[in-house]
Nucleic acid binder design. Structure first.
Length: 285
DNA sequence: ATGGGCTCCTGATGGC
DNA sequence: TGCCATCAGGAGCCCA
């Protein structure tokens, strides 16, 4: 379940292992992996071949690698189960290997592995936004809280401007990006807010507290996740070490709340699970 | 415009 | 052992 911290670990790995290298061959093993590349798999492979990877960048849960210092980039989203692996040429194919990229230096190849194929790659143009360049398909999403140019007041205003439940707003990538189901539940727990609270009823201060909690929990996860990847794997499995260890609410059904000891409950919301403490995070009436 | 529900996909798990 | 239901869930898409 890669959310921002996990994706950032992948980005750092890409920067380290594939930046500066020239693509010699691209193999698309599953067409769905490049479905966002409208001209199709053959076009994707042809246009990527011969290009040099430059900087690996990220916004929210999206990654992209700039090409040749040009106005093009390969954009990637890991979806629910995507992984970027750096493997020696000749290593056995993973069961869910979807795209293979080989390099002119004959060094380790880059593999996009994705069991459930919610993720994917595409070649797109970059457009200017703010002080940088952004791939066209993600120009609509908001800055994430770890972006140096993230504007907390603007994020608060965006959240409070919605007439909906606070968790739905947190998960809306157009307002603030990078927050998924896990970190949304953790931020709500830290802020003692029930997921069904209406955004419009939140004070500026409370909304600010919520976004700061989300930022903090993602920073902590990044520190934990960043320590756990080995030289060959850009990311082991899309999860950080933080995932198992330090979650206070997510996945903790029936376990005692770390603050008050009340059993954490699980409720269905937006076709997924929300975990909360019924005492610290009372449901709105 | 905006809120909100549906759907894509595969594999693990649990109940009977 | 087999079979079915449920769950995991990001985000694009569609409809009211």
């Amino acid at each position: 379940m890669p959310e921002l911290p996990e994706v950032e670990v992948v980005r750092a790995g890409l920067q380290r292992h594939v930046a500066g290298r020239t693509v010699s061959q691209v193999e698309v093993l599953h067409p769905r992996a490049v479905r966002k590349h409208v001209p199709g798999a053959a076009d994707f492979a042809a246009r990527l071949t011969g290009r040099r990877f430059d900087a690996a960048r990220r916004r929210g849960k999206y990654l992209w690698i700039e090409l040749d210092g040009s106005a093009d980039a390969v954009v990637a989203h890991l979806g629910m189960s995507g992984q970027m692996l750096v493997q020696p040429v000749g290593a056995e194919d993973e069961t869910h290997l979807r795209v293979r990229v080989r390099f002119a230096d004959d060094g380790p190849e880059l593999r996009f592995v994705d069991q459930r194929t919610f993720g994917g790659l595409a070649l797109t143009e970059l457009v200017a936004q703010g002080s940088g360049l952004l791939p066209v398909p993600i120009a609509h999403i908001g800055r994430d809280p770890l972006d140096p140019e993230f504007d907390l007041a603007a994020g608060v205003a965006a959240l409070r401007g919605r007439r909906t439940e606070v968790k739905r707003a947190l998960l809306d990538q157009t307002l603030v990006s990078g927050i998924g189901n896990i970190y949304a539940d953790e931020a709500l727990w830290r802020t003692r807010l029930h997921w069904a609270r209406q955004t419009a009823g939140l004070t500026r201060a409370k909304a600010g507290e919520l976004l700061e909690a989300a930022t903090e929990v993602m920073r902590e996860a990044l520190v934990a996740g960043g320590t756990s990847f080995d030289a060959l794997y850009v990311n082991v499995n899309g999860q950080s070490g933080y995932f198992d260890r330090s979650l206070a609410a997510y996945g903790q059904e029936n376990r005692p709340c770390g603050r008050c000891g009340t059993a954490i409950i699980r409720e269905a919301f937006m076709n997924r699970s929300s975990f909360s403490c019924p005492r610290c995070q009372p449901r709105p009436r």
